[in-house]
Amino acid sequence: MEDLLVIAVGAIFVNNIVLYWFLGLCPFFGVSKKTSTALGMGSAVIFVMTCASAITWPIYTYLLIPFNIEFMRTVTFILVIATFVQLIEMVMRKYQPHLYKALGIYLPLITTNCAIMGVALLNIEEGYSFIGSVVDGFASGIGFTLALLLMSGIRERLEFADVPRSFQDLPIAFISAALLALAFMAFSGMRL
């Protein structure tokens, strides 16, 4: 029980997927201009990341290891994740049209989101158990959403700020991300 808490807090704050691992930066800068879209993207990522962790772990442990084909993990993981995202999209459109309307446009973007693949690989590298992997996937999703929401809040305010011309738009977003990452560095002193 204790371990799961450590994994969760670690994934959300200490080793934040965006600000520590540098994963999922494309959506982090791409869809962080408005809080509402950031929230939509965040929920889609939480959902897919949790499911992807739950799927890739058994595949690696019960399929790739027994057959000694661990080197195939890159190919397998990316295919499984891409297929899975497509599947969710189809199922959601059929049974949950409301949810599909809210999250639908973000789903295709997620396939090439390195955060999903990164978390699947990290679970294997860290040697987590099945439950641990699922918790890590979920918590990493929360961490991503947290970072994205903070960033979108900052960028909404930046719209009204008087930024020097050469710093406008992306450069100032990177500088803000640097300050955000600096703030998150403080969590690394936290040991559970």
């Binding site: 540098f22 406008q168 992306l170 100032i172 640097a178 560095m185």
Partner: peptide, 22 residues
């Protein structure tokens, strides 16, 4: 060396490129 440095470096380099093209 830490993550903030990475964001800072690319931000400043991009601003310099923008400055040049402006």
């Amino acid at each position: 060396l830490l993550p903030p440095g990475a964001f800072l470096t690319i931000g400043v380099i991009m601003a310099l490129i923008n400055y040049r093209s402006i």
